[in-house]
Design a binder for these strands. Structure first.
Lengths: 204, 204, 204, 204
DNA sequence: AATGAATGAGAATTCATTCAT
DNA sequence: TATGAATGAATTCTCATTCAT
């Protein structure tokens, strides 16, 4: 039906604009990027952008939405896991790091604005962070119930692990040398450390 | 000597300006803050700020410098530690979290700009992050040598642990509920997890 | 004939658009009103308006045309006059004030633009003001010829009287308290003053 | 003192800007005039205007303030009048018309915006219209008390007379021919009509 | 050294109008 | 004839920075 075509056209245009915005934001950052920049890259007029997005910030929200969807799709993948704890963690870590690295520059920009823009922050938390935790907690609780891991405060533990990802990515963005050269060693290392701890032979 | 007085005056004025800048940045964020805002809070004229700082970004660098010093002083404190691994970690974590929380809002602003401003990023990394790691690595290597902890890749491990801090703080800034309500439980939890791992009785 | 139907359709559509324009102009004023606003109220697409009116200003001209017709129709009514000078004036005044008050908000907008837009001004004068004076002068001249009123410069006198209306309406629009509360007393007062003058017992 | 010089400089700059604004507004109208236009005529930078006026509308308010002062000064003059009613009215009318005509084009612009801008309207009414009426009413009441004029509703009568001025000016702005050619006859005519009325020998 | 008025580049956003469908 | 997406010119206002006093 006509509606569907309309909607598709609109979605396509939005997508085209978001592509351009993503590109330019990644390249120059949020504030230094002008609407004109984005329009030029998108190959449309300045004003057209405002037919699809209320303002510049809405572009960031739009980008966030797309990250959101990507994330969700990946989440599904990560659900498709089997038994062995160590294998799973390694696989999981590998995937998380790959995903985020792919869009590192955008993430950088988005994160920067998130730190400073309440609306964005709340949307990001509500739509991306929180749901992820909900899933992760459920999954981890199951592992505990199956006696595959020690019983710990699930919520905080999940936060600690996720934070490690987040922090490592930021540290990498900051140009940390060791992280840049040994990034691929992280999955194994983190799995090891998180499973067995740092103490001598598992005891103090 | 006269020079010394001169320098002290200059230092005092710089400090006064940075205080104002810190206050306003924390309150409104970097971009929305105008030089006029800062001057007003500092009780001086707009132009005067430019006698002490090259531009707006230099104010952020100045703030960073001060954080740097604070950090270093704290570092010294943290060096004054004793033997027991678990006790030390708990104490260390407690201190790190407290320090950062104190200036959470500034940190938020600084981090936001760091993500996006190469110069700032490099300075922050060079002056604050890297030195911290150097010390931490040395310290941790000593622990390994004393067989108090397992031998692991020191550089990456230190990064992983630090990242957890960083990530947790960001997650808290984002408004994460569990972190906000159970923040004080973190030192114990992290110590436990990092020392003994998540796996059942220390083995897979 | 087909033409006639065509014309009627066109007239209906124009009318529909002008209704919408009148409503929105009255509500928000000329400049703040967008074509989109009008189209929305009219229930049609933006572009359609341009099939019936050359541009935004033409809408105002269109509204003026309609006021014009209304006015003329009212004029006819006012022709239905009787004898007694005082009675007539009172009746006339009453009607004028009522008419204008009815569409006060549009008048406000139209007047505002008239002050500033030469084309509009000329059209308003040519189509509405001038014809009214022509009729009024003729009528007043007749009164003079019948010795019902003193012989005076008819043109100027008519202008003076009309101006009083106009000015009173504007003063009312401006929010003048006495005019708002005692508006209904005006016909009697004006009739009295204009007929008998302000001086003591008609002599200086 | 320094303050006084400061203030004078500021006043001078404000005046310079208002002069420019008056000129350009009179020439092109309010909306078509850009800040750039005004700055250019004032021989300063765009931004400078914003150091003295909050926004474009504030310029109009500023112009109004100056009209206000002018008006007030004229008012004083008009107070300095003597006895004979007819002579006084003639003189008064002559003055009112002259004053307004002098700044006709600005008045035109101001009036246009007043019709449409509530803030402006209220300020104009409060600062210019209302005080004028207060004075006029007091004066007229005195005349009544001295039996120099008939007792009438003072407030409404003053409004009616003032409105006549206002209306006549507007009509003239609209390009009314008779008013333009016979403008100078108005004082005499209005005095005559208002004093003695239109009816035959002062009676119906 | 301090001031703060002046500067003017720059950017977001609006909206009347056009025109392909 | 109706549509409404696209256009892009145009404008207001902000604010970091300069510099004469």
């Amino acid at each position: 039906m006509k509606d569907s075509i309309q909607e598709q056209l609109i979605a396509a245009r939005r997508s085209q604009i978001l592509d351009a915005a993503t590109t330019v934001f990644a390249e120059k950052g949020f504030h230094p990027t002008t609407i004109k920049d984005i329009a030029k890259v998108a190959g449309i007029a300045d004003g057209t952008i405002y037919n699809y997005f209320e303002n510049k910030t809405a572009l960031l929200l739009g980008i966030l939405d797309r990250l959101n969807e990507t994330e969700r799709r990946d989440e599904d993948l990560s659900q498709a896991t089997g038994a062995d704890m160590g294998t799973f963690m390694r696989a999981y870590f590998k995937q998380r790091f790959t995903v985020h690295l792919h869009s590192l520059e955008v993430f950088q920009v988005v994160l920067s604005e998130i730190m400073v823009n309440k609306e964005l922050r709340e949307q990001y938390y509500r739509q991306i962070v929180e749901p992820t935790f909900t899933i992760a907690e459920k999954y981890y609780q199951a592992l505990i119930d199956q006696h595959m891991v020690r019983p710990v405060d699930v919520a905080l533990t999940m936060r600690a692990i996720s934070s490690m990802f987040l922090g490592l990515i930021i540290l990498r963005i900051m140009g940390d040398k060791p992280l840049q050269t040994q990034w691929d060693d992280l999955p194994d290392l983190l799995t090891d450390v998180l499973l067995h701890g740092l103490s001598q032979s598992g005891s103090e």
